[in-house]
Design a protein around this nucleic acid. Structure first.
Lengths: 332, 332
DNA sequence: CTGAAAGCGCTTACAG
DNA sequence: CTGAAAGCGCTTACAG
């Protein structure tokens, strides 16, 4: 285990004081050009790098953001994370990712670690079980800004960046109206999640307010398998009539597609399908599935922007909602 | 910005020395029960937590592993990461993830950061451009073990954990032989990647060594779109004859499925499909696609095991290859 | 232009 | 059983 180069060693070799070396390395105007040259040369030669622990102990400042997510298996997170990262790098920040495994206990440990490490800021999508926002407020007390994204807690005074659930549901519902479909089956996720409630509510409102009379049936599915079963049942119920299925999420879409393929149905001829998605799953089928896009990319930029404002001192809490747009596939 | 509780403050309030507080908090046998009680009580009350920067500066020891991956959009990585994490937690280590964006420059920065932070160990899947292994050896010099996984560099003396490319290709080829298919189209990825070479070589060897005479055609595709085009062309060539398509990866499978759906082909009736995959994409279709599984889960356990050995002092470099197994879907 | 000194918050050998 | 002291590697106000 090789010892690291330190200011002390450079100072000793060059017969100057540690203070001088420290100043020279950060290009302090006091130090003479000649001394700076000597010091920088040696530092480069022995590949000196400041010990971040020592620096931090003194300055309480690291340029690191933490992103905390429940899981990694989500294309929305990918685009969000890469967007944050790209932008953060430009500002001289590095980014690392913590995974909470959707476990509030682990999430708590991660938050504590972020606090103790005094990261510059935290972007977090909370677990489905997270109820207590005290740990987040605590981060704030220590001057660490927290930006919630995607799965956000019910908290007025927080900075939140959300996908446009309402707008996405509206786009999907409008697309269905436009096609003039009469029988619609909406499949939604966990009814306790706010994301489900918003999407459900908007979807229903738009369809019911249209001038067409539509037979709308809505169901909740907690897994792809369940969604598949629901569709198989519905196909029997709606026998003979053209049906459009709305999928609130990728997981549900996966189940729906299983049922559609199992029954050998062609879309959009035999059945119509429309979804809210980040776009990965819809593109696996032919024709591609039409979906209202919830992309993390633009959202990431907005989130980072907000973060930089917070770091600059803004204490004003704000909820930012990105717009969605319809990506026409050909499935309805 | 609230000041953090410190040993000093506890010491002052209790009229004992800092050393005593430090010892009491780590349950040192020298300290009297009564003193320990008092100190622990106050520490709990004010929520004292040691400053990790100060601790590190003294002890050079943090219990953190870094996982570095080129990208997050890969189910193999998800299972690998969650497996590592789960196991690491049991050993009292926490895990954070760095994303290199498949950029060797960023990868370099990450490695440096790992070195300076003296993480306990690094698990890394390198970028496709990574040529220079010097930075990894450097980590090793500083006593930080490096375990390569999945995308590993050509380096004899490294610890590597790999998916069983050979075994997976063998299983897929054997499955094709068993079905007695005569016309086979193999679609492979970037021919410069070692993973492609191994899969290609084994696949061909097994098919050619079988006693059946098989017409085998192999092509390289660098994207899903390209794979789709290849299949469309091949369908014309093999007109009328039953064809089995082997997909080396999920990306290729995605393209192949696009073509198959576009042509309205039924599988396994009209065409046979078999793939190497982590299992997510194959399960989206009906019938599900048959594939040789390359799961990160078991691999993660093996990798962590190896890491713990390295930390315990083993300097013996080892390449571990996990076995694959065939998951029967119904697509061939 | 340069250096000695204090201090960030901790740990640990040494002394009593 | 407890404490004073040195030191991890750095930064920065103060002095010259």
């Amino acid at each position: 285990m090789k010892p690291s180069p330190t200011l002390k060693k450079i100072a000793a070799q060059l017969n100057v004081s540690i203070s001088t070396v420290s100043r020279a390395l950060k290009d302090h105007p006091d130090i003479s050009i000649e001394t700076k040259r000597k010091i920088n040369e040696l530092a480069a030669l022995i590949e000196y790098d400041p010990n971040p622990y020592a620096v931090n102990l003194r300055t309480h400042n690291n340029k690191e953001f933490a992103i905390v997510v429940p899981s990694l298996s989500n294309f929305f997170y990918h685009s969000f994370i890469s967007s944050i990262e790209e932008e953060a790098r430009k500002h001289g920040y590095s980014v690392f990712i913590y995974r909470s495994s959707n476990d509030p206990q682990i999430e708590l440990e991660i938050l504590k670690s972020c606090r103790l490490k005094r990261v510059s800021g935290v972007f977090i999508s909370v677990t489905t079980e997270t109820k207590d926002i005290a740990p987040f407020l605590k981060l704030d007390e220590y001057g660490i800004p927290v930006i919630f994204f995607d799965k956000v807690p019910a908290c007025e005074l927080c900075n939140k960046i959300c996908v446009a659930d309402e707008h996405a549901a509206l786009l999907a519902a409008s697309a269905i109206l436009k096609k003039g479909v009469q029988n619609v089956l909406g499949i939604f996720g966990d009814p306790n999640m706010s994301i489900t409630q918003v999407r459900y509510h908007t979807f229903h409102k738009v369809l019911n307010e249209g001038n067409q009379k539509i037979q709308l049936q809505s169901v909740n599915a907690s897994s792809a398998d369940e969604a598949e079963q629901i569709v198989l049942t519905a196909l029997a119920d709606f026998k003979g009539r053209y049906l459009a299925i709305f999928c609130m999420s990728d997981e549900i879409l996966a189940g729906v597609m299983k049922a559609v393929q199992r029954k050998g149905l062609k879309f959009p001829q035999d059945i119509g399908i429309i979804s809210i998605s980040d776009g990965m799953i819809p593109k696996l089928f032919y024709p591609e599935i039409t979906y209202a896009e919830t992309s993390g990319f633009k959202l990431g930029k907005l989130a980072l922007n907000r973060m930089m404002r917070c770091i600059a001192g803004s204490s004003f809490a704000q909820t930012i909602i990105d717009e969605s747009h319809l990506v026409e596939g050909g499935s309805i």
